[in-house]
Structure formats: structure tokens, C-alpha cells
Design a protein around this nucleic acid. Structure first.
Lengths: 300, 300
DNA sequence: TCTGGCTCATTCATTTTTGAATAGACACCA
DNA sequence: TGGTGTCTATTCAAAAATGAATGAGCCAGA
């Protein structure tokens, strides 16, 4: 038995993602009969039924689900290959993909990346914002801005410094509700905070407990969202008191820092795969991110 | 422009590895014109010349070399996918790939894996022996036996214990040359040790310095090889004094431990990708390796 | 200097893959 | 209940990919 066509894996992934032959055909630019034949061929080659067919679509079997992560890995690698090929050798051009948290991506990176693109007009930037750590080894991104020390080998990581977080509220809120005199007084206020408890958020809360043991735990969370960015907007809009980056708040004259003795720090890193050091577009972007973020962290 | 056929990447890798269209065609089971057309098509799709053609073969350009790691990643992932598909769901069967050092693979694993296969007759084992750490995240192996604590996320790692290393020689050698009275006396003996200094070996030597500060550094290395296994054989054959696992030496009545106050310890781990926990064949192999190695480490 | 072995490029017939069109089945909604 | 949208399966002709054969260039060794 020969090794199956690698294309069949791409088709498999598309069918897994879309749930039907027809929809997969549309995303792949093929036709439904072709996609169906690909799946047939793969089932025969692997010796497993991959889908139970019905007129409403295809339901993946356990075997197909077991293969899913592999096909995803193939797809991210192929995408990374195309990014690598998008630039001429030696030139800072083509596509570079950056992973960062939403707050950093929305509030901090734009001027940094904009300046970078002004210097390199043929450089295209893809910005992937999420709190889940995209795996650089699997090439889901070329470069990542992270708030934890990268623990993997084969990564080039540069320490940027620490970003200070503090309690903030908008003037409009304080005019209505007054300022808390101490941490305990926070229990009487409207608080903006996290919604569901994901692993990342549990870690954040744990970090708060560690850095500020007297932070009350019976707060009145009146505005909950898992997006840091939405929290920031809510604080700016006067919804209540919440935690955000001190530097960001300083830019906005309507934001007031409260109880400055309460302070958290986020260790910040920029990381990329060490192979990409050879790649001018990644190298230039890495350097620009480091310089820009260091400026941001150190700015008065 | 459409995304290129994933098959083209496989062809690219084969040409990079073999250095010619014809040789690549042979390994792929295609013909030389087809391989040539694949490369043409890929060059057109990516917009780069990938090879400079000549009658002696194809010379990869820098662009092709830059893409090489990506194609390798694709190949290892596709191989891992096939391994995953090699077993029926829920059954301990199919192919499992294990990475370990040569000494462990030759001296320690055979009985463990043999017992495992006796329990699961349809389980096939691939054993990849090398001192370079195969990357489990890139699926170069399903399970690895390692002498360093795995530092990557997304790995299930189990600590086995520590393997003790000591100085040993064969009786035949000692009959000829006598035994050293202390570490300093080693300078007068024939020593079996490393040849080139790779990163791994430098780390080993550093570890010796750390654990045994009075180990002399002006030894007479008369038998040098980078293979631990070849060192072991050399010691057994009476070539000189060298370092090997105490448990291994105990099995051989002709091996004598020298200066037992000199002792190094190797921390031992078994690691696998956490997704593979769902996979019965990997799970069973992981457990068997852990049990077998723990027995080995604890055995009297 | 010739020969055998290797390489890549080109041509043309064959095989394979694909797409367009169509039919049939199910779900939803008026 | 009938119309409309979705889905998969099937058929057949067109398009694309492939392989066999051949030519030509280079190199090493007799």
C-alpha cells in the first residue's frame, strides 16, 4: 500500500471543519464529488471509516477525530511554509504572523507595527489575538508576545520587562460613586472582572492572591467578561473599578488610578522560533517588537 | 493564486534529500518527468527558483533550503498520522515510535518492549536511537525516554528515578594494569571517553565537573568515541576505564566498579504528547516503559 | 578517446482526476 | 402539503497529470 496523497489530508481537514462534503468543496475550490472521492480514497488507504454519511452532512467517526490534530498540524505548517516563501531571500517583505493578547494587540502594537511597515512597505502583518498561547513550535505564529517566560527549547526569547497593572476607574464613575479609601472598601463598589474561569484566568487570580494577599475575595462583580479588552472598555465607560495596565490608563485623562499601593506586574517576553532568525522579515519584526515594547514599558 | 498542492511539498522534500529529480522519483515511486513538473509548478506557485539545474543533479537555492524544515515537519506529521491510523480505535495495536539513547535502547528496552509485545501481539515498535532529543511536539516520535526533565508544555512526563553512573573496567584490563587507588591515579590509566565535543557531550562533561569536582581533567583518553554504546563495549572488551551505568555493569561478572565514591546520576523521564493519552497503543506503551524502567532503576 | 552510467528536458499516448449535470433524500417553512 | 434549500451519490465527458520513450549533456574509468 502506498502512502496516501498529502492532499487527501487537506481535504479531510476541510470536511472535519465544515461538516459536509459540499461545504468543504466550496472552501477548497473543488467540487463535492471530488471531495467525496478523496474521503473514499483516504478511508480505503487508512482502513478506517472516517465519516458516517447522511443527507444532512457527514458525521466524523472517532477515527477521524483522532486524526484531526495531525491534519491541523499539517495545515499550520503548510501555512507557515507559504509565509516563509512569501518573501524574497534577504528582503524584509512578505507575511509575518504575530500572536499577542487582545489588549496588547489593540492598544500597544498598532503604532509599533505601523512604524515597522513604514520602514518596510512590502511587509504584511497578520495579527492573531487570543489568550491561548499559540504554539510557536507548531508554527501557528512566527512571533509571540507573551506574559509568561517561554519554557520551550528552540525558541529565541527576549525579556522586555514588566508591565504594571493597577486598579482604575473612569472619572465619571468616581463622580457618581466616590473613591475607595482602601482595598476593603472595594467590596462596596461595582467591579469589572472575569466571567468564566479558564485555566489562564485561574492563573491570573492566583497571581493576584500571591502579589496582593489582602485583596478581598468577596467583591461585587457587576460587569463580567473574559476579554481583557472588553474589561478595559467597560472601565473607560464608567462601569466600575477594574484592573488594567497602568501605562494604558495614563494615556486617557478620564482614567484614574486607585489605591496605587495595589500593583501587579506582568513579565513580558517576545519569542520566536530560532530557525526564523535567518529570516529577515521575522528578524526585523522581532527587533521592532522588542524595541517598541521596551519603549512602551519604560515610557514615563 | 491558489494554495499549492500539498503533494508538491512532499516532492520538494524528496528532491532536497536525494539531490536529483531521478533519485527523488525512485523514492517516491514516480517518474523523473513528473517530479520535474512538480518542482516547476512549485517554483511558479511560490515565485522563487528552488534549484539550479545541471546534468549532475539539482542544487538547492537558499530559498529551497529555507523551506526545508517546513517540509520535514510536514513529513514527520504525516508519518505520525499514519501511525495513529495504523491501529483500530480502542485497541492496542499498530505502530508506536519510541526515541531513546542508544545504551537504553540496546541494553534496557528490549526485554521491556518484548514483554509488551507478548501482551499485545499486534503492536509494532519502532525504536529510534540517538542522543539528539527528538521533538515530541513535532511528532518525530510518540514516546521518548529522556535524561533531562522535559521542559515543554503539552507533554505528559513521568519521572522514573535516577540512573547511577560509575567508573568501570573489565577484569582483563585490571589484571594487566592494576586498579587506580584514587581519582588522581586515573591519569596513569587508559581511559575510554568521548570523541568530538557536541553540545550534549559538553553538557555531560559539565555535569561531571559539577557532581565530582576533583575529577581530573588531564586524563589520557586512549579510546574515544561519541557513542555511549561503543564506549560500553570498549570497557567490556578491556580497552580501559570508563563511565557507564552501574546497573548495566552489575549484570556482567567481568565488569568491576572502581572508586565507588565517584558517582554520577542521570535523572530519567518518560514523556509523550498529551494528546496521545487517548491513544491506547501509546498509553499502553508509555505505561509499560514506565513500569519496566522503574524496575530497572530500582533493581538490586 | 571511447563507453557506461548518471543526469535533466521534451514529446506524445495513456491513465487518472476532475467538474458539470442530474437524481434522490431529508429538513424546514409557509 | 408543496416548495425550497440543503445534503450525498452517480454518470459521463473534459481536463489534467502521469509515464514511457527518446535525446542530449556531463563525468569517471578503462
Amino acid at each position: 500500500m502506498n502512502e496516501p496523497d498529502w492532499n487527501l489530508y487537506r481535504t479531510l481537514l476541510a470536511v472535519l471543519e465544515t461538516g459536509s462534503l459540499s461545504a468543504a468543496a466550496r472552501t477548497l475550490g473543488l467540487t463535492q464529488p471530488t471531495v467525496g472521492r478523496h474521503i473514499d480514497e483516504l478511508e480505503q488507504a487508512l482502513g478506517h471509516a472516517l465519516f458516517t454519511r447522511s443527507q444532512q452532512g457527514l458525521l466524523p467517526t472517532d477515527a477521524a477525530e483522532a486524526l484531526r490534530p495531525y491534519t491541523e498540524n499539517l495545515a499550520t505548517t503548510a501555512a507557515a511554509l507559504l509565509r516563509e516563501a512569501s518573501s524574497a531571500i534577504g528582503a524584509v517583505e512578505g507575511v509575518v504572523r504575530i500572536s499577542a493578547s487582545d489588549v496588547i494587540g489593540v492598544e500597544v502594537l498598532p503604532p509599533i507595527l505601523s512604524k515597522l511597515q513604514a520602514a518596510h512597505p512590502r511587509l504584511d502583518v497578520e495579527l492573531s489575538l487570543s489568550d491561548t498561547l499559540h504554539d510557536l513550535l507548531r508554527r501557528e505564529a512566527d512571533i509571540a508576545v507573551r506574559m509568561t517566560r517561554p519554557r520551550q527549547d528552540a525558541l529565541v526569547a527576549r525579556h522586555i520587562g514588566t508591565i504594571e497593572l493597577g486598579l482604575h476607574a473612569a472619572r465619571s464613575y468616581l463622580d457618581r460613586k466616590g473613591s475607595p479609601a482602601d482595598l476593603q472598601a472595594l467590596t462596596l463598589h461595582h467591579m469589572v472582572g472575569f466571567d468564566r474561569e479558564t485555566a489562564f484566568i485561574r492563573a491570573s487570580i492566583e497571581s493576584i492572591r500571591q502579589q496582593a494577599p489582602d485583596f478581598p475575595d468577596n467583591l461585587h462583580w457587576t460587569y463580567r467578561t473574559d476579554s481583557n479588552l472588553a474589561q478595559l472598555s467597560a472601565i473607560r465607560a464608567g462601569a466600575g473599578i477594574g484592573i488594567c495596565q497602568v501605562k494604558l490608563a495614563q494615556r486617557d485623562p478620564n482614567m484614574v488610578r486607585l489605591l496605587p499601593e495595589f500593583s501587579l506586574s506582568l513579565d513580558t517576553w517576545v519569542a520566536m522560533h530560532e530557525n526564523l532568525r535567518q529570516s529577515p522579515r521575522c528578524r526585523a519584526t522581532f527587533d521592532a517588537l522588542c524595541d517598541g515594547l521596551i519603549d512602551y514599558v519604560r515610557s514615563a
